[in-house]
Design a protein around this nucleic acid. Structure first.
Lengths: 366, 366
DNA sequence: GTGAAAGCGCTAACAT
DNA sequence: ATGTTAGCGCTTTCAC
């Protein structure tokens, strides 16, 4: 017998064919319930598969079919709690269809995106879900070649010819801003995100528009990069320069955490001195430690839809037609803007986390 | 010409060979700087590769070599902020060596581990880093077959014959408990983790031992599952049953967040009424919003070492010898145990995040 | 130093 | 309904 390079313990389709006394083609057909196979033969093959504990090599399969059943999820930073939640729902939905998900951090740097994607595309990846598109949008599209292989989510793409699933950022920001204005706030700060992140710019634009609805209202805008540190800096600079804001909106809950930290360090009462709100509806924002008013994005739903859309595109042979879905947001009103004694909730025993009390249109008091 | 199944735009090694006027063997050799190739030929091939923009198919390579350059990271829950930090350092270190990392959530369920691992092993995965071993330890080892293909981290394995990189959980818990005792606390609660998580049991054991060093000290222990909710529940139950604790140690920072939330809801002052400490040294624990005393685990270092160890094992042809590394922890003392007026730090402008002031042995006041 | 040829484990024409 | 055969893109003996 000649020296074989084969993985020692590997049971191949040939072994199964031999065991079942049929050809490899038949085994292959049974395995994928392809074409017609006599039910008796099918049973024999199934038995052989079980007896030998055979599992097809997805690598060999990928080599011949060109499909790896691997998806990439591009995020700017897994450390931002919004993304793990998104990733979880994406992985779950993908697993249901037999797909694996590889998560890559781009850190919002084009080079990182290019590096990961080149590696992955040549490794063989069926599709991409980009949850943090920005300056790398063009690179992704050109590297991928076929727009049907990508779905953008979270941050809307610039390109008109790709699919995406995003939240109604404008709607959420408008509702939040109007709520603050209705509560009497007239000087409101907005800690934004980078200009290349379109979810951030949409929120900012909606904010400034909403502010204009009240003539005497003033907007203060600070830039940022979605990080906790940015929240700290913006607040510190505003307050040290004597800016007398009465409310602050952070571009997301992480930035709000930074802002809240700075406000507390500087001795401000929330919402007594300054009200604070975030965006995303992450879990920790619900904690009594933050009791942060925020705009819930329905992350899970967004993830699920992104996967479904991508898989549909991948299997659809017809001409490609980009689809887009915009999910509504939900305002979650909490102590950071609504005030109220914290101890009052103690009467209810374990504090309520996401329980609706008096809900307005699309908003809940939690 | 016959119909080809080849991916349309794919440039193969054959194309390069043709372009360079050599055989595929030579191209293959140049690509992996294998064996001796005439420097002139090498240059010709390199030029052809560049001109055609050729990149080898890792799938084909995997099929023949049996190596996929894919690693799996098993975690119980990406949503626990400790894991994204770990994942980041692992991905970074793996990328340096040309490896990709797939993150899988086990949710601490054996079935989940089995499912993911079976899928991945037959997809072809070179190695596994298990950061959340528990009841699934045996399954992982038997599914993998070869112990050299796995490194455990974060939670020490039961098995003596596998490698692992963990923190000195006992040391950290001892230092923290002694610190609280030294501050005069005599009734200390410990919100633990599940019994199958050995990092949790190590911390718990060290805690009870340290408590015994002070005769009049009392320990209160609650079970849990590393989740925020567990922190809430434990605290609520203790306090509603009239337990007069003066300090609480949570098994990790997420549980501490839950505990802090419950304490605040119930109107307790931290640390005035009850002091609180966590474990892990996650970023959000450092925020003035939590100012949580915690035991820093050096996650990044742990991740880096786990990858290095795994890659070493994978490439080492000799007989397998399991190695283990235990990294020291560092006590980070903050407001949740040390008291002090929050506003005092305001004088320093942006509050200090991890700035050492008066440091004891292995501990820092932050 | 270089090339021809035999696979890695599987799928998909094309027979039968 | 089942088998034969030719690859997928690459690595690797074994000749030259």
């Amino acid at each position: 017998m000649s020296a074989r390079r084969r993985t020692p313990g590997r049971v191949t389709i040939v072994d199964v064919a031999h065991e079942a006394g049929v050809s490899v083609t038949t085994v292959s057909r049974v395995l994928r319930d392809h074409a017609e196979v006599h039910s008796e033969t099918r049973a024999t093959v199934r038995a052989a598969v079980d007896r030998l504990g055979y599992r097809p090599s997805l690598i060999a399969r990928a080599l011949v079919s060109g499909q790896t059943h691997l998806l990439v999820l591009l995020v700017s930073d897994v450390t931002n709690p919004f993304y793990p939640q998104l990733a979880k729902s994406i992985e779950h939905e993908a697993a249901k269809a037999g797909y694996m998900v590889v998560i890559c951090n781009t850190e919002d740097r084009v080079q990182e995106t290019r590096r990961s994607l080149m590696w992955l595309l040549h490794q063989g990846v069926d599709g991409v879900i980009h949850a943090s598109s920005g300056r790398d949008e063009a690179v992704v599209l050109s590297l991928l070649g076929d727009p049907r292989r990508v779905v953008f989510t979270n941050r809307p793409p610039k390109s008109q010819s790709v699919s995406y699933v995003v939240s109604d950022n404008a709607g959420g920001a408008t509702a939040l801003t109007r709520h603050l204005l209705a509560k009497g706030h007239r000087k409101i700060g907005f800690i934004g995100g980078p200009s290349y992140a379109r979810n951030a710019t949409e929120r900012l634009y909606a904010f400034t528009q909403a502010i204009r609805e009240v003539p005497e209202a003033q907007a203060f805008v600070a830039g940022g990069k979605f990080s906790t540190t940015c929240g700290e800096q913006a607040v510190t600079e505003w307050l040290q320069s004597g800016c007398d804001l009465s409310a602050i909106i952070a571009i997301n809950d992480s930035v709000a955490l930074g802002a809240m930290g700075a406000l507390m360090s500087l001795g401000y009462d929330i919402p007594g001195d300054i009200a604070l709100a975030g965006f995303d509806g992450t879990d920790f924002a619900a904690s009594p430690v933050m009791r942060l008013t925020t705009v819930d994005q329905h992350v899970d739903e967004m993830g699920r839809r992104a996967v479904k859309l991508l898989l549909k595109q991948l299997s659809d042979p017809g001409p490609f037609v980009p689809l887009s879905e915009v999910l509504p947001c939900r305002l979650l009103l909490r102590g950071s803007t609504e005030g109220g004694a914290l101890t009052s909730s103690a009467k209810n025993g374990p504090y309520p986390l996401k329980r609706p009390l008096s809900a307005g249109a699309g908003s809940e008091r939690v």
